[in-house]
Write a protein that binds this DNA or RNA. Structure first.
Lengths: 142, 142
DNA sequence: ATATACATTACTAGCATGATCATGTTAGTA
DNA sequence: TACTAACATGATCATGCTAGTAATGTATAT
């Protein structure tokens, strides 16, 4: 499984918005980009995509920006990754049924299940707590 | 995880060679390509790669071709896939250590482990038996 | 010798990715 | 109302990878 920059950015953006939650004031693109270390111009498109997916809400104009449309606890990491990056194991090639001896697809199916078991058990609330934990450690280190 | 055509072809080629095993006579590229439904010209490169990996041996000239250099039971599917297609979860982006709040990498690590547990438990001997089982079913159906 | 089959390198077309830019549209505020 | 901050949308572009083809070289059995 290759994690594209796009998926990675999307994850980080969503994490930043989750860390911002439940603050009502919208978070601006530039702010998200800065905190998440994401190219601003690129983030624009990702956020639009996230909006189309119903994960975030936007407000235009002055004081505008983005907020999550659900609580972080309702956003499942695995589901999100699948929506953003496509299915985990898209075997690009599924030749015509002639392949009676397709011994491989069951394996990919099992792989997909194994992955899902890991990632479908994580919500962005978990990630928020983890991130907060990590930054506390950081404070201690300084 | 995206399975490239290349990886898919490599798997199928190796399976054909495994089905051929332990026949001493080498199997020719054209033959492998035909049985595995693989573009011949492309298969050339894959076989060279497999040879460099030490999985197959080649004989040039008339009556030349390829055979496995180990028994199918010694070839682990997971290891093979990793060698051919690269690591399962190469997060292309591992920004400078500044990312203290990298809450994602542990997840990818867990995913990688989960995948490995599935695919490292399968050898090409297993696949051969499965394929033979499937073709028997085929015979019955005819 | 010669035909056969692997070896190697070069090349191409197409596509996806990451990224930027230009130009709209919306909405708060003086 | 005019202005400005911020999102919205689509076009564009450079780059690199992927799948596939072609041409030429090298080894070997007969």
């Amino acid at each position: 499984m290759r994690i594209s920059a796009r998926s990675d950015y999307a994850c980080r953006a969503l994490l930043e918005l989750a860390l911002h939650w439940p603050n009502k004031a919208p978070m601006q693109i530039g702010d998200i980009a800065k905190r998440g270390n994401i190219p601003t111009k690129y983030l624009v498109h990702i956020l639009i995509h996230l909006k189309q997916m119903g994960l975030v809400k936007s407000t235009r104009g002055k004081e505008g920006g983005y907020i999550l449309s659900k609580s972080p606890g309702e956003i499942v990491f695995g589901k999100f990754i699948r929506q953003i990056g496509g299915p985990f194991v898209p075997v690009a090639i599924s030749k015509k049924g002639a392949d009676k001896l397709n011994v491989f697809s069951p394996i990919w199916h099992d792989v997909e299940s194994a992955i899902s078991e890991v990632v479908d058990d994580i919500t962005f609330q978990d990630l928020v707590e983890k991130a907060r934990g990590l930054s506390e450690v950081l404070v201690y280190q300084i």
